[in-house]
Nucleic acid binder design. Sequence first.
DNA 1: TCATTACTCCTTTTT
DNA 2: GGAGTAATGA
Length: 760
Amino acid sequence: MIISKYLDGLNKSQKEAVESTEGPLLVLAGAGTGKTKVLTSKIAHLISLRKASPSNILAVTFTNKAAREMKYRIGQSLGSMVEGMPWLGTFHSIGAKILRIHAELAGLKSDFTILDTDDQLRLIKQIIKSENIDEKRWPPKLLLGYIDTFKNKGLMPTEITYNQDYQFANRKASELYGLYQNRLSILNSADFGDLLLLSLNLLKRNTDILNKYQNIFLYILVDEYQDTNVAQYLWLRLLSQKNSNIACVGDDDQSIYGWRGAEVDNILRFESDYPGAKIVKLEENYRSTEKILGAASGLISYNKDRLGKTLIANIKDEGEEVHIRSVWDAENEARLVTDEIEAKQSKGAKLEDIAILVRASFQMREFEDRFIMSGIPYRVIGGPRFYERQEIKDAISYIQVVSNSNNDLKLERIINIPRRGIGNSTLQALNKIARSNNISLFLAAKQIIETDEIRGQTKIKLANFINSIELWKDAKSSSHHTDLVKRILDESGYTEMWQNDKSPTASGRLENLKELIGQIDGFDSIDGFLDHVSLVMELESDTSAEKVSLMTLHSAKGLEFENIFLPGWEDGLFPNQRSLDEKGNSGLEEERRLAHVGVTRAKKSLWITYALNRRVYGLWQQSIPSRFIDEIPEEYKDFDAEYINTNNYYQQERQSKYKNFDAGYTKNNNNYQKESQFTREATGTKIPAWKRIKKNNSVTINAEFQEINIKRKTNFIEGQRVFHEKFGYGKIIDINQLKLEIDFEKSGIKTVLESYVKIH
DNA sequence: TCATTACTCCTTTTT
DNA sequence: GGAGTAATGA
């Protein structure tokens, strides 16, 4: 029987989730419990029972990768009988699709361009300038952040109340947001947030259209529901209102995108949002050993706001303890990890089964250095994306200008790259004409070269450039699109610019341009390619090669590896100080969920390390092990002597460091204290001298304190011989407030804070 | 218009 | 410490 094929491999709760097709359903799927399997089987089930044809199922994911994976797996379980699911994709791509169909209703044309962050920022800068707002006092980036937040919340400029508005240049955030939207409309462009916001608005305001989609989407499936923001939530609600067949899969313990507007509340509230909702918990974990799961469960149990589920190990193997190691600094950390990798390798482990997950991308550097040095092949996942590279963006901008020369933002980007003598003053003149006549820059340029407003050389150069664009536009219909791109890059002098560039990155950039042309060749037309570029930022890389993976914890969600290394578990770095400062306890909980995500990536072995010293903004700081290390139950971890002996000290340090914040924390969480007393007894061990040095510049200190510090003069004088715990003896060569530049006898010239230095 | 210098912010995470 | 940007001068 055909049905059994995909139902066979499912456990009881998975099967229940798959077979509950009617009405609202929330599947709480813990890490490694077969979430994707449930989703794909469910789709297969719907299709093979003929409850819906593939085109009547809306299935949304967050990443293109997840969408691809789902498509692939559905194809596998149904054989070839499923041909394309038009409504399976990311929130953004489906939003874009709907928006293109009804663009006029949103003040756009159906061929609108999708802006990236660069363009957004450029636009916002222009608006801030034209409104005579001081860019220094009110940074464009801040406004961009506010606008994004508005959009994440599903708010149009006119819907923002006084109280919701931000303190940006006299509460002008919403007003500027309105101006920004107007500009976007004039430019026939939408930013990322618009793809959702505008399509949401469309559905809200046009019942006929809403009706149409409600009738198309007989079944709605949502992946990673815990990551949805308000706009996405409202969008889903509207679409599911009619027939209520909405199945959301998610894990509140893996909600790690709060900073991007995700609302864990959406998942916590599901039952009250959808009365009569069925809830299925998937708790059987098929990934990790018992000890790793125990560590993960212990850790996440410190979170208060959760729906509560317990991961049960399906793999009956205790496995190794979680290894906790302390190291002197980041360099040693990288060495320890690579040594361990090499040891594993010699025992037969494969490099592709090993991953290093960091909290922040700056941590990657030490590892890369070390890998290069020891010749270990590695790959960075989610690093600087292909389409975000400068040369690729430039090239694409050229293509976009040829495709639509009224794209002012792109034209501005390339008008003087390579240098062709069209500088700022010319550009400003163009902008002025464009504004006053309400035309695009391109048209303004055409106009200006007919007049005498600009002089000799500049005029000729501008005329030449405009002329070239016209020529390329003419060639668009007659030549093959790949040839046209080659021609544009050559004739514009862009390729030549990099050929003449002597910097070491130049050859790589030329390679990338070649790669880009190869990519373009894979598409039928330029427009098809452009749409792909704006929605699919990543470029698939081969995951098969024998390489260690290096990535951030965020990009590791959804992946699994035999061996996981989690470096940098230090207070301030992880949990991240800024998270804590900005969002207090909920920030801490999100960090903890991130830690939980990290731990649950591991199948067999897990190493957590922390460095006692780390360089922050070029200055050396001493650090304390992360509280998350404490929170992993004793019986699941194995740690070195250093950690046990000094832990009591760390506990105190941490508490004084977060005095205000911890007050609430300990009150809310009895476990924390109980656990600490139970597991940690004062050992009476003497704390090494360097640790007793009083800190006066921890990562964050209240403003008052810092002020005093800056005003205070250092007692050191130039030429003095001093001692530093890390670098040894040295001589002060320069003093800048509390920063001392010291020429160390063994480690060379370094800048350090005076508090780490003793007079010798 | 372009090159050099000074200054800034940064290091959370991304569709 | 270092990248990116704005200000400054040639």
